[in-house]
Amino acid sequence: MDTIYTNNTLVNLQEEYDKTKIQEIIDELEKELIGLKPVKTRIKEIAALLLIDRLRNKLELVSGSPGLHMSFTGSPGTGKTTVAMKMADILYRLCYIKKGHLLTVTRDDLVGQYIGHTAPKTKEVLKQAMGGVLFIDEAYYLYKPDNERDYGAEAIEILLQVMENQREDLVVIFAGYKEKMDRFYESNPGLSSRVTNHVDFPDYTAEELLKIAKLMLEEQQYKFAPNADTVLLDYAERRMKQPHFANARSIRNAIDRARMRQANRIFASGDKVLTKGDLITIQSEDILKSRLFTQTN
């Protein structure tokens, strides 16, 4: 990396970058998350902008105070919460937040059931999130224009005030399906203007889901039999076409069910002497017993 200088002040980019240790976070993203190349690229871009902003402040250059509030859009199970945790780490290491924790909430944590209930709930959540990142999942449920007695609008107004007036104390990430999130922002221009970083999470391909499945198995000290990975790939392609598909979450559920079937299969073998291989191997039949394969069309 280059050296930035102005007048008699020098700043070595590489030294400053190494000090923050944000490369560790980026490496963790690469290691822990399969695919998601556009997401990883966007996170690197945000990190680079924040690092340069920090260097400009050190050299007393005019800084545009980059907006930190974000929007993560995509289907369930695409890694939004995981990336939010990594983003909190990056913001903390770059000194943009003081604590670096992530607080995940939904509408029920913010909106009350009666008059006078919403403000205290929302303010308590904000108090817990201060110094870190507030991750609001399925944020569009905060706004229900068809219900005049709904108190979600009150929670949004309180959020807006804090997002504007306490930007140095809290970063907010709104998350949910892209189409619903777009309508959510259209409904409140004030909210849209405060969210400057938009990250879209693509669905995984069947091949990526197979890689994710193998990682999950490895973490639990299991493995696929030689032909089982092909069966899991077929399962992923079928599951992607079914309702309520949740990407990596659906694959995790499939792996959990396959482990249960493996356990039942082994238990049914009676007094057979078991090897380590028997205990750690998921056979194709453990996946083929899924209702996606056994149902009749």
Rank of each mutant, 00 (worst) to 15 (best):
E154Y: 02
V273D: 12
K178L: 10
K214F: 08
E186W: 02
M1P: 13
C95H: 15
L217A: 07
E237L: 10
I43P: 01
N297G: 14
V171R: 02
K144G: 01
S284I: 13
E207M: 04
D200P: 00
E24K: 12
T230P: 00
A258F: 05
A254L: 07
G116C: 03
T78S: 02
T73N: 11
F174K: 00
T82N: 02
I280E: 15
G277K: 12
I97V: 15
P76F: 07
I22L: 02
E208S: 08
M216V: 14
Y141D: 09
E157T: 12
L160Q: 06
V231G: 02
L51P: 03
L160K: 10
A225P: 01
S65P: 00
N264R: 14
D200W: 03
A213R: 04
Q242D: 12
T20D: 01
E208F: 10
M70S: 09
K127Y: 10
L13Q: 06
L274I: 12
E28S: 13
I212R: 02
V171H: 03
P76S: 10
E60A: 15
T41H: 12
A119V: 10
E28N: 08
V62Y: 12
E124I: 00
D234P: 01
E164A: 13
L217M: 15
E138N: 00
Q14M: 09
F201E: 01
L33W: 04
L29N: 07
P66C: 08
A175Y: 09
E219T: 10
L134Q: 01
D169S: 14
S284Y: 07
E24C: 03
S65W: 08
E208G: 06
P76T: 08
F293D: 05
Q220G: 04
I26T: 04
K241C: 05
D109S: 11
A175V: 09
Y5L: 10
T122I: 07
A225H: 07
A263M: 12
Q23V: 08
R265K: 05
D200H: 12
P189F: 08
L51W: 04
K276M: 11
N253V: 02
R194K: 11
K276S: 08
T82A: 09
G176Y: 04
V231N: 02
D150H: 06
G116Q: 04
Q128K: 15
K211N: 14
G77F: 04
A139N: 03
D109A: 13
A213Y: 06
T20R: 05
A88M: 03
I34V: 15
L103S: 01
E30V: 09
D89A: 15
V231M: 09
C95V: 08
G35M: 06
Q23E: 15
R291F: 11
S75K: 08
R42Q: 14
K99C: 02
Y222W: 05
K211W: 11
I212Y: 04
F72C: 00
F201A: 00
I158V: 11
Q220F: 02
Q161N: 11
N8Q: 13
E60D: 14
S269Q: 14
G100M: 06
E208H: 07
I136F: 06
R183G: 14
S290G: 02
V83H: 01
I46T: 03
F184G: 03
N165C: 05
L134R: 01
H244V: 04
Q283T: 13
A228C: 05
Q23I: 10
P189K: 03
L68S: 07
A139T: 04
L110F: 07
N8D: 14
D53E: 15
Y235C: 03
V125D: 00
K272Y: 05
